[in-house]
Design a protein around this nucleic acid. Structure first.
Length: 478
DNA sequence: TGAAATGTTGGGGCG
DNA sequence: ACGCCCCAACATTTC
């Protein structure tokens, strides 16, 4: 009987995996996941992502066990691990889904070579995208650099492949004798276990992902277009970590959303808005694949010379949610406590770091990489560059969010700020987003002493804004 | 997927 | 009745 290794990567699910389905048709499947911090290098998963990965692997292992198999875990250089396995001689093929970040692309090529050398078939299948990046190009055959035409092109292109159902009757190969346990991978935080309460917030795994999608399309999508901007409202899908680890494929999301639209045509605006977010994810991967430098280097070259300030104390205040700007602090604390931050608040906090604090977007990117459960190599880098103004189709540099105005607009009732910055909870709405302007008596009544119970703003908005614009003038000619 | 500065308009109070 | 001023509301442009 032929045995195929199915190498799981960013696709921790069993449905809609063409490579798994093909392996299934060929014979026995040896399901394998390798935690590869060696090849990932400085793109090794961050702490919050590791928490997610642990539970996602647990869920996948359970699902495989339900049909009589065992998910094999290994740790180390994927190529070396695979070489070891193939040298035992009873593996016929290796299948996997594509992955599109630079180190994963490089690794894929090495795996192909290794397999060829050892006389084993290596097959890779479409990964977690709607369209293969090579298939999307503008009229001159170049990659897109602007979102709108990119997404228009995607929407008009051939519809993404119809998702495959769960394979029926899988025959799993006997487990490896030498393999790691989930505990060996040491993915969970210990002392302190800052994620102890996270299982109440999230359900990693294919089933949790499917439920989250169904729940969103059933309950939330009808108010999406407006609600998505209000962080206290539960209006977004929160699918990002599920997509990040491939517990759900974007193809499944796309087709589920289209089916929903078919049933309820009045939802067209809402669903198109939602799908456009999937579009931004797709666009980020398109950029990362065609311009792999975008992880590190500004897409717009003139930003190489940007005079970043690099003040460590300010960075620390931002990370800890102690900037003195309530909306910013609320966001940074939400992130720290839940591994997640509402999208609008991501824009506000990122704008604050890069523009008000003149701190390099890479410092923010690293922080998000470590603390977000949905930290995604493409979305994270591209979105930070977008906010900073150095990215493809980026927000113009002079688009500087006013943290007070943003708070008043999108958290008018103050529920978001009060939840995450409880020391301000008793301030009336009128001053909640600018406590430094509250009269003495109001502060006293709310039990607030600026500079003691809540920080003085670390920078003055007006001055910071002007300093940012002045810094931009220095690089503008390019 | 902004914000601030600047310009324009129109209603209402008032001499 | 009329012009004048003030200012809010909205529109445009500038960063």
């Amino acid at each position: 009987m032929a045995t195929t290794i199915y190498l799981f990567r960013n696709d921790l699910r069993l449905s809609d995996l063409p490579g798994l389905a093909a392996a299934n048709r060929a014979g026995d499947i040896l399901p394998l996941y390798i935690l590869d911090d060696v090849n990932a290098g400085d793109r090794a998963l961050g702490a919050a992502s590791r928490w997610w990965l642990h539970h996602s692997l647990q869920s996948l292992a359970d699902a495989i066990a339900d049909s009589g198999g065992t998910l094999n875990l290994l740790q180390g250089d994927t190529n070396a691990c695979l070489q070891d396995l193939l040298s035992t001689g009873n593996i016929n093929a290796v299948h996997c889904s594509r992955a599109y970040s630079p180190w994963e692309v490089v690794l894929e090529a090495r795996l192909r070579d290794t397999c060829e050398t050892m006389g084993v078939t290596f097959k890779r299948y479409p990964g977690p995208l709607l369209h293969e990046p090579e298939h999307i190009a503008n009229q001159s055959g170049e990659p897109f650099k602007v979102f709108t035409p990119f997404w228009r092109h995607c929407c008009r292109a051939q519809s993404p492949a119809q998702p495959l159902p769960l394979p029926s009757r899988t025959t799993w190969a006997d487990p490896l004798t030498q393999r790691a346990s989930l505990r060996d991978l040491a993915l969970l935080p210990t002392k302190p276990d800052w994620a102890a309460h996270w299982p109440e917030l999230w359900t990693p795994g294919e089933e949790g992902a499917r439920d989250a999608l169904a729940h969103f399309l059933r309950e939330r999508v009808s108010g999406y277009a407006k609600g998505r901007d209000h962080p206290a409202e539960n209006a977004t899908s929160r699918l990002s970590p599920h997509l990040r680890f491939g517990e759900l494929s974007p193809r499944q999301v796309w087709h589920a959303a289209r089916a929903c639209l078919q049933q309820e045509p009045v939802l067209e605006e809402q669903i198109n808005k939602f799908l456009a977010e999937l579009g931004w994810r797709e666009f980020s991967y398109h950029l990362l694949f065609h311009f792999p430098d975008i992880e590190q280097a500004p897409f717009k070259a003139q930003f190489e010379d940007f005079p970043w300030l690099g003040d460590e104390a300010l960075l620390k205040a931002w990370q800890r949610g102690q900037t003195g700007y309530p909306v910013v602090d609320a966001g940074m604390r939400e992130l720290w406590h839940t591994g997640y931050m509402h999208n609008r608040i991501r824009m506000v906090t990122a704008s604050f770091l890069t523009k008000h604090l003149l701190t390099h977007w890479r410092a923010g990117e690293r922080w998000f990489w470590d603390t977000l459960v949905d930290a995604d190599p493409a979305s994270n880098a591209c979105s930070w560059q977008w906010v900073a103004g150095s990215g493809a189709d980026a927000a113009p540099y002079f688009r500087i969010f006013n943290p007070v105005t943003q708070g008043e607009k999108f958290d008018a009732g103050g529920r978001y700020v009060r939840r995450w910055v409880p020391e301000l909870a008793d301030l009336p709405d009128r001053y909640l987003h600018k406590p430094w302007e509250a009269p003495e008596a109001t502060l006293r009544e709310a039990g607030i002493i600026i500079g003691e119970t809540y920080p003085q703003p670390v920078v003055d908005h007006r001055e910071a804004r002007e300093a940012a614009l002045a810094a931009y003038q220095q690089i503008r000619k390019g």
